[in-house]
Design a protein around this nucleic acid. Structure first.
Lengths: 158, 158
DNA sequence: CCAGCTTACTTGCTCGCGCAAGGAACTGCT
DNA sequence: AGCAGTTCCTTGCGCGAGCAAGTAAGCTGG
Protein backbone atom coordinates (compact mmCIF):
# COMPACT_ATOMS: atom_id res chain seq x y z
CA UNK A 1 0.00 0.00 0.00
CA UNK A 2 1.12 3.50 -0.81
CA UNK A 3 0.51 6.15 1.85
CA UNK A 4 -2.65 8.14 1.36
CA UNK A 5 -0.86 11.46 1.51
CA UNK A 6 1.82 11.33 -1.16
CA UNK A 7 5.29 11.97 0.20
CA UNK A 8 6.43 15.38 -0.99
CA UNK A 9 8.94 14.98 -3.79
CA UNK A 10 11.53 17.62 -4.42
CA UNK A 11 10.75 19.43 -7.70
CA UNK A 12 13.42 19.37 -10.38
CA UNK A 13 16.15 21.97 -10.48
CA UNK A 14 16.74 23.76 -13.78
CA UNK A 15 19.64 21.48 -14.65
CA UNK A 16 17.67 18.39 -13.81
CA UNK A 17 14.73 19.66 -15.80
CA UNK A 18 16.99 20.16 -18.83
CA UNK A 19 18.40 16.66 -18.48
CA UNK A 20 14.99 15.06 -18.14
CA UNK A 21 13.68 16.87 -21.21
CA UNK A 22 16.70 15.93 -23.26
CA UNK A 23 16.65 12.34 -22.17
CA UNK A 24 12.93 12.25 -22.85
CA UNK A 25 13.55 13.36 -26.39
CA UNK A 26 16.36 10.89 -26.85
CA UNK A 27 14.38 7.97 -25.54
CA UNK A 28 11.38 8.65 -27.77
CA UNK A 29 13.27 9.53 -30.92
CA UNK A 30 16.33 7.31 -30.90
CA UNK A 31 14.61 3.93 -31.12
CA UNK A 32 12.46 5.16 -33.96
CA UNK A 33 15.46 6.45 -35.86
CA UNK A 34 17.52 3.31 -35.51
CA UNK A 35 14.56 1.07 -36.27
CA UNK A 36 13.86 3.18 -39.33
CA UNK A 37 17.46 3.01 -40.55
CA UNK A 38 17.49 -0.72 -40.12
CA UNK A 39 14.19 -1.30 -41.93
CA UNK A 40 15.09 1.10 -44.70
CA UNK A 41 18.58 -0.14 -45.47
CA UNK A 42 18.60 -3.69 -44.20
CA UNK A 43 14.95 -4.75 -44.30
CA UNK A 44 14.88 -5.83 -40.67
CA UNK A 45 13.33 -4.35 -37.56
CA UNK A 46 15.31 -3.33 -34.50
CA UNK A 47 13.55 -6.00 -32.45
CA UNK A 48 14.53 -8.68 -34.93
CA UNK A 49 18.09 -7.41 -35.16
CA UNK A 50 18.39 -7.39 -31.40
CA UNK A 51 16.97 -10.90 -31.18
CA UNK A 52 19.39 -12.32 -33.73
CA UNK A 53 22.27 -10.48 -32.10
CA UNK A 54 21.62 -11.86 -28.64
CA UNK A 55 21.23 -15.36 -30.01
CA UNK A 56 24.49 -15.08 -31.92
CA UNK A 57 26.31 -14.20 -28.73
CA UNK A 58 24.83 -16.96 -26.62
CA UNK A 59 26.60 -20.26 -26.02
CA UNK A 60 25.49 -22.76 -28.66
CA UNK A 61 23.71 -19.82 -30.31
CA UNK A 62 20.58 -20.65 -28.39
CA UNK A 63 18.55 -19.19 -25.54
CA UNK A 64 15.41 -20.00 -23.63
CA UNK A 65 12.46 -17.83 -24.56
CA UNK A 66 12.41 -15.97 -21.26
CA UNK A 67 16.15 -15.34 -21.33
CA UNK A 68 15.80 -13.97 -24.82
CA UNK A 69 12.87 -11.79 -23.83
CA UNK A 70 14.82 -10.38 -20.91
CA UNK A 71 17.89 -9.79 -23.02
CA UNK A 72 15.86 -7.90 -25.62
CA UNK A 73 13.78 -6.02 -23.05
CA UNK A 74 10.61 -7.44 -24.52
CA UNK A 75 7.61 -9.07 -22.91
CA UNK A 76 7.41 -12.82 -23.20
CA UNK A 77 4.44 -12.61 -25.53
CA UNK A 78 6.23 -10.07 -27.66
CA UNK A 79 9.16 -12.45 -27.90
CA UNK A 80 6.93 -15.38 -28.80
CA UNK A 81 5.73 -13.44 -31.83
CA UNK A 82 9.12 -12.06 -32.74
CA UNK A 83 10.57 -15.55 -32.79
CA UNK A 84 7.56 -16.81 -34.74
CA UNK A 85 8.25 -14.20 -37.42
CA UNK A 86 11.95 -15.05 -37.52
CA UNK A 87 11.19 -18.76 -37.61
CA UNK A 88 8.82 -18.36 -40.55
CA UNK A 89 11.70 -16.76 -42.43
CA UNK A 90 14.08 -19.54 -41.46
CA UNK A 91 16.38 -17.42 -39.30
CA UNK A 92 15.57 -19.21 -36.07
CA UNK A 93 14.46 -22.71 -35.13
CA UNK A 94 12.68 -23.67 -31.95
CA UNK A 95 13.44 -26.93 -30.22
CA UNK A 96 12.08 -28.34 -26.99
CA UNK A 97 14.30 -28.08 -24.00
CA UNK A 98 15.12 -31.66 -23.01
CA UNK A 99 15.89 -30.79 -19.40
CA UNK A 100 12.49 -29.14 -19.02
CA UNK A 101 9.60 -30.14 -21.23
CA UNK A 102 7.87 -26.81 -20.78
CA UNK A 103 10.78 -24.84 -22.12
CA UNK A 104 11.90 -24.01 -25.63
CA UNK A 105 15.22 -23.02 -27.06
CA UNK A 106 15.34 -20.45 -29.81
CA UNK A 107 18.30 -21.48 -31.96
CA UNK A 108 19.98 -19.26 -34.51
CA UNK A 109 20.25 -20.94 -37.91
CA UNK A 110 23.14 -20.35 -40.32
CA UNK A 111 20.72 -18.31 -42.43
CA UNK A 112 19.90 -16.25 -39.36
CA UNK A 113 23.56 -15.60 -38.70
CA UNK A 114 24.04 -14.58 -42.32
CA UNK A 115 21.05 -12.25 -42.02
CA UNK A 116 22.54 -10.67 -38.93
CA UNK A 117 25.91 -10.21 -40.59
CA UNK A 118 24.23 -8.68 -43.61
CA UNK A 119 22.47 -6.16 -41.42
CA UNK A 120 25.49 -5.40 -39.27
CA UNK A 121 27.01 -2.66 -41.44
CA UNK A 122 23.73 -0.79 -41.50
CA UNK A 123 23.40 -1.02 -37.76
CA UNK A 124 26.99 0.08 -37.30
CA UNK A 125 26.55 3.05 -39.59
CA UNK A 126 23.32 3.99 -37.84
CA UNK A 127 24.74 3.81 -34.34
CA UNK A 128 27.88 5.69 -35.36
CA UNK A 129 25.85 8.45 -36.94
CA UNK A 130 23.09 8.61 -34.35
CA UNK A 131 25.12 7.99 -31.23
CA UNK A 132 28.88 7.75 -30.99
CA UNK A 133 29.71 10.50 -33.49
CA UNK A 134 27.97 12.92 -31.15
CA UNK A 135 30.11 11.95 -28.19
CA UNK A 136 33.46 12.58 -29.83
CA UNK A 137 34.72 14.81 -27.05
CA UNK A 138 33.09 13.20 -24.03
CA UNK A 139 34.36 10.59 -21.66
CA UNK A 140 32.53 7.50 -22.83
CA UNK A 141 33.23 5.45 -19.74
CA UNK A 142 31.81 8.02 -17.36
CA UNK A 143 28.83 8.51 -19.62
CA UNK A 144 28.18 4.81 -19.78
CA UNK A 145 28.45 4.50 -16.02
CA UNK A 146 25.92 7.25 -15.63
CA UNK A 147 23.41 5.76 -18.03
CA UNK A 148 23.95 2.25 -16.78
CA UNK A 149 21.93 2.86 -13.68
CA UNK A 150 18.95 4.44 -15.37
CA UNK A 151 15.68 2.64 -15.11
CA UNK A 152 16.78 -0.01 -12.66
CA UNK A 153 15.55 0.56 -9.15
CA UNK A 154 12.31 0.32 -7.28
CA UNK A 155 9.18 -1.38 -8.52
CA UNK A 156 10.44 -2.37 -11.92
CA UNK A 157 7.69 -3.87 -14.02
CA UNK A 158 7.90 -4.67 -17.76
CA UNK B 1 21.91 7.30 -54.48
CA UNK B 2 24.18 5.49 -52.10
CA UNK B 3 27.47 4.19 -53.50
CA UNK B 4 27.36 0.56 -54.58
CA UNK B 5 30.31 -0.36 -52.42
CA UNK B 6 29.45 0.71 -48.89
CA UNK B 7 32.01 3.07 -47.44
CA UNK B 8 33.96 1.21 -44.79
CA UNK B 9 32.78 2.31 -41.36
CA UNK B 10 35.10 2.07 -38.42
CA UNK B 11 33.92 -0.70 -36.07
CA UNK B 12 33.11 0.29 -32.51
CA UNK B 13 35.79 0.33 -29.85
CA UNK B 14 35.09 -1.50 -26.60
CA UNK B 15 34.08 1.72 -24.86
CA UNK B 16 31.83 2.74 -27.71
CA UNK B 17 30.30 -0.71 -27.79
CA UNK B 18 29.52 -0.46 -24.09
CA UNK B 19 27.93 2.94 -24.52
CA UNK B 20 25.81 1.85 -27.46
CA UNK B 21 24.54 -1.20 -25.59
CA UNK B 22 23.72 0.82 -22.52
CA UNK B 23 22.02 3.56 -24.45
CA UNK B 24 20.13 0.92 -26.40
CA UNK B 25 18.82 -0.53 -23.19
CA UNK B 26 17.91 2.87 -21.84
CA UNK B 27 16.08 3.92 -24.94
CA UNK B 28 13.97 0.78 -25.12
CA UNK B 29 13.23 0.45 -21.44
CA UNK B 30 12.88 3.99 -20.18
CA UNK B 31 9.83 5.05 -22.21
CA UNK B 32 8.03 1.88 -21.23
CA UNK B 33 8.80 2.40 -17.55
CA UNK B 34 7.68 5.99 -17.44
CA UNK B 35 4.59 5.29 -19.52
CA UNK B 36 3.80 2.43 -17.19
CA UNK B 37 4.24 4.54 -14.06
CA UNK B 38 2.00 7.22 -15.49
CA UNK B 39 -0.76 4.83 -16.53
CA UNK B 40 -0.58 2.94 -13.28
CA UNK B 41 -0.59 5.83 -10.86
CA UNK B 42 -2.17 8.67 -12.82
CA UNK B 43 -4.30 6.90 -15.45
CA UNK B 44 -2.74 8.72 -18.35
CA UNK B 45 -0.33 7.69 -21.08
CA UNK B 46 3.05 9.29 -21.62
CA UNK B 47 1.90 10.56 -25.01
CA UNK B 48 -1.10 12.25 -23.46
CA UNK B 49 0.93 13.70 -20.63
CA UNK B 50 3.47 15.06 -23.05
CA UNK B 51 0.73 16.55 -25.22
CA UNK B 52 -0.94 18.30 -22.31
CA UNK B 53 2.41 19.52 -21.03
CA UNK B 54 3.45 21.08 -24.29
CA UNK B 55 0.07 22.75 -24.67
CA UNK B 56 0.27 24.14 -21.15
CA UNK B 57 3.59 25.76 -21.95
CA UNK B 58 2.53 27.29 -25.24
CA UNK B 59 1.36 30.90 -25.53
CA UNK B 60 -2.43 31.02 -25.17
CA UNK B 61 -2.17 27.33 -24.25
CA UNK B 62 -2.68 26.42 -27.87
CA UNK B 63 -0.64 24.95 -30.72
CA UNK B 64 -1.17 24.00 -34.34
CA UNK B 65 -1.40 20.27 -34.91
CA UNK B 66 1.92 20.04 -36.70
CA UNK B 67 3.71 22.09 -34.05
CA UNK B 68 2.29 19.83 -31.40
CA UNK B 69 3.30 16.73 -33.31
CA UNK B 70 6.84 18.01 -33.66
CA UNK B 71 7.03 19.00 -30.01
CA UNK B 72 5.89 15.56 -28.90
CA UNK B 73 8.02 13.70 -31.47
CA UNK B 74 4.92 12.10 -32.90
CA UNK B 75 3.74 11.71 -36.49
CA UNK B 76 0.93 13.99 -37.56
CA UNK B 77 -1.50 11.12 -37.78
CA UNK B 78 -0.50 9.93 -34.35
CA UNK B 79 -1.15 13.40 -33.03
CA UNK B 80 -4.54 13.59 -34.72
CA UNK B 81 -5.61 10.54 -32.79
CA UNK B 82 -3.99 11.58 -29.53
CA UNK B 83 -5.82 14.90 -29.65
CA UNK B 84 -9.04 13.12 -30.61
CA UNK B 85 -8.74 10.99 -27.48
CA UNK B 86 -7.99 13.98 -25.30
CA UNK B 87 -10.82 15.96 -26.88
CA UNK B 88 -13.31 13.17 -26.21
CA UNK B 89 -12.36 13.42 -22.55
CA UNK B 90 -12.72 17.19 -22.56
CA UNK B 91 -9.07 17.98 -21.92
CA UNK B 92 -8.50 19.67 -25.25
CA UNK B 93 -10.65 21.58 -27.70
CA UNK B 94 -9.95 22.03 -31.38
CA UNK B 95 -10.75 25.27 -33.07
CA UNK B 96 -10.16 26.35 -36.64
CA UNK B 97 -7.24 28.60 -37.24
CA UNK B 98 -8.71 31.87 -38.49
CA UNK B 99 -5.54 32.91 -40.26
CA UNK B 100 -5.50 29.66 -42.23
CA UNK B 101 -8.70 27.73 -42.78
CA UNK B 102 -6.84 24.47 -43.24
CA UNK B 103 -5.23 24.68 -39.85
CA UNK B 104 -6.46 23.75 -36.42
CA UNK B 105 -5.43 24.83 -32.97
CA UNK B 106 -5.43 22.33 -30.18
CA UNK B 107 -6.38 24.31 -27.08
CA UNK B 108 -5.89 23.13 -23.52
CA UNK B 109 -9.09 23.36 -21.49
CA UNK B 110 -9.15 24.15 -17.76
CA UNK B 111 -10.05 20.50 -17.23
CA UNK B 112 -7.01 19.53 -19.26
CA UNK B 113 -4.78 21.74 -17.15
CA UNK B 114 -6.24 20.21 -14.01
CA UNK B 115 -5.60 16.75 -15.43
CA UNK B 116 -2.00 17.66 -16.13
CA UNK B 117 -1.50 19.06 -12.67
CA UNK B 118 -3.04 15.96 -11.15
CA UNK B 119 -0.60 13.78 -13.05
CA UNK B 120 2.41 15.96 -12.36
CA UNK B 121 3.43 14.44 -9.01
CA UNK B 122 3.41 10.98 -10.51
CA UNK B 123 5.53 12.10 -13.42
CA UNK B 124 7.91 13.88 -11.09
CA UNK B 125 8.27 10.88 -8.84
CA UNK B 126 8.81 8.65 -11.86
CA UNK B 127 11.47 10.83 -13.44
CA UNK B 128 13.24 11.31 -10.11
CA UNK B 129 13.32 7.62 -9.47
CA UNK B 130 14.08 6.49 -13.00
CA UNK B 131 16.42 9.25 -14.06
CA UNK B 132 17.81 11.98 -11.86
CA UNK B 133 18.36 9.90 -8.74
CA UNK B 134 20.85 7.86 -10.72
CA UNK B 135 22.88 10.87 -11.72
CA UNK B 136 23.48 12.17 -8.22
CA UNK B 137 27.23 12.40 -8.63
CA UNK B 138 27.51 13.35 -12.27
CA UNK B 139 27.77 16.71 -13.94
CA UNK B 140 24.27 17.19 -15.26
CA UNK B 141 25.14 20.03 -17.60
CA UNK B 142 27.86 18.08 -19.39
CA UNK B 143 25.63 15.05 -19.57
CA UNK B 144 22.80 17.06 -21.05
CA UNK B 145 25.11 18.63 -23.60
CA UNK B 146 26.26 15.21 -24.65
CA UNK B 147 22.81 13.77 -25.04
CA UNK B 148 21.46 16.90 -26.67
CA UNK B 149 23.12 16.10 -29.92
CA UNK B 150 21.98 12.50 -30.16
CA UNK B 151 19.74 11.61 -33.03
CA UNK B 152 19.94 14.90 -34.85
CA UNK B 153 22.14 14.78 -37.92
CA UNK B 154 21.95 13.36 -41.39
CA UNK B 155 18.85 11.97 -43.03
CA UNK B 156 16.45 12.49 -40.19
CA UNK B 157 13.06 10.98 -40.97
CA UNK B 158 10.20 10.44 -38.53
C1' DC C 1 -10.45 34.06 -62.32
C1' DC C 2 -9.66 29.56 -62.46
C1' DA C 3 -6.41 25.34 -63.14
C1' DG C 4 -3.11 23.15 -61.04
C1' DC C 5 0.19 22.71 -57.30
C1' DT C 6 1.06 22.85 -52.37
C1' DT C 7 -0.08 22.57 -47.51
C1' DA C 8 -2.63 20.96 -43.31
C1' DC C 9 -4.90 17.65 -41.48
C1' DT C 10 -7.68 13.18 -41.34
C1' DT C 11 -8.79 8.36 -42.33
C1' DG C 12 -8.06 3.35 -43.70
C1' DC C 13 -5.04 -0.05 -43.08
C1' DT C 14 -1.69 -2.79 -40.88
C1' DC C 15 1.77 -4.01 -37.56
C1' DG C 16 4.02 -4.77 -33.19
C1' DC C 17 3.41 -4.81 -28.47
C1' DG C 18 1.55 -5.68 -23.60
C1' DC C 19 -1.97 -7.67 -20.59
C1' DA C 20 -4.67 -11.26 -19.08
C1' DA C 21 -6.26 -15.79 -19.67
C1' DG C 22 -5.22 -20.48 -21.11
C1' DG C 23 -2.73 -24.85 -21.40
C1' DA C 24 0.94 -27.96 -20.63
C1' DA C 25 4.69 -29.60 -17.89
C1' DC C 26 7.20 -29.74 -13.54
C1' DT C 27 7.32 -29.73 -8.22
C1' DG C 28 6.03 -30.53 -3.51
C1' DC C 29 3.08 -32.12 0.12
C1' DT C 30 0.60 -35.68 2.06
C1' DA D 1 0.21 -41.95 -6.30
C1' DG D 2 -2.45 -37.71 -6.60
C1' DC D 3 -3.74 -33.18 -6.16
C1' DA D 4 -2.49 -28.21 -5.52
C1' DG D 5 0.46 -24.75 -6.79
C1' DT D 6 4.00 -22.88 -9.82
C1' DT D 7 6.51 -22.05 -14.05
C1' DC D 8 7.02 -21.54 -19.08
C1' DC D 9 5.20 -20.43 -22.99
C1' DT D 10 1.27 -19.27 -26.30
C1' DT D 11 -3.12 -17.07 -27.69
C1' DG D 12 -7.12 -13.59 -27.79
C1' DC D 13 -7.73 -9.06 -27.53
C1' DG D 14 -7.19 -4.15 -27.73
C1' DC D 15 -4.34 -0.10 -28.28
C1' DG D 16 -1.29 3.18 -30.13
C1' DA D 17 1.60 4.38 -33.93
C1' DG D 18 3.20 5.02 -38.85
C1' DC D 19 2.39 5.03 -43.88
C1' DA D 20 -0.15 6.11 -47.73
C1' DA D 21 -4.17 7.83 -49.76
C1' DG D 22 -7.88 11.12 -49.37
C1' DT D 23 -9.99 15.79 -48.60
C1' DA D 24 -10.30 20.55 -47.96
C1' DA D 25 -8.25 25.03 -48.04
C1' DG D 26 -4.80 28.22 -49.56
C1' DC D 27 -1.59 29.90 -53.19
C1' DT D 28 0.23 31.08 -57.96
C1' DG D 29 0.75 31.93 -62.93
C1' DG D 30 -1.30 32.78 -67.15
Amino acid sequence: MRPVTEPAVEPLSADEEALVRTLGRVMTVLPKLIDHDLRQDAGISLTEYSTLMHLSEAPEKRLRMNELATACDLSLSGMTRAVARLESEGFVRRIRCDADGRGWHAVLTPEGLARLEAAYPTHLRSTRQRITDNFADFDLVTLTQALDKVGCPGSTPV
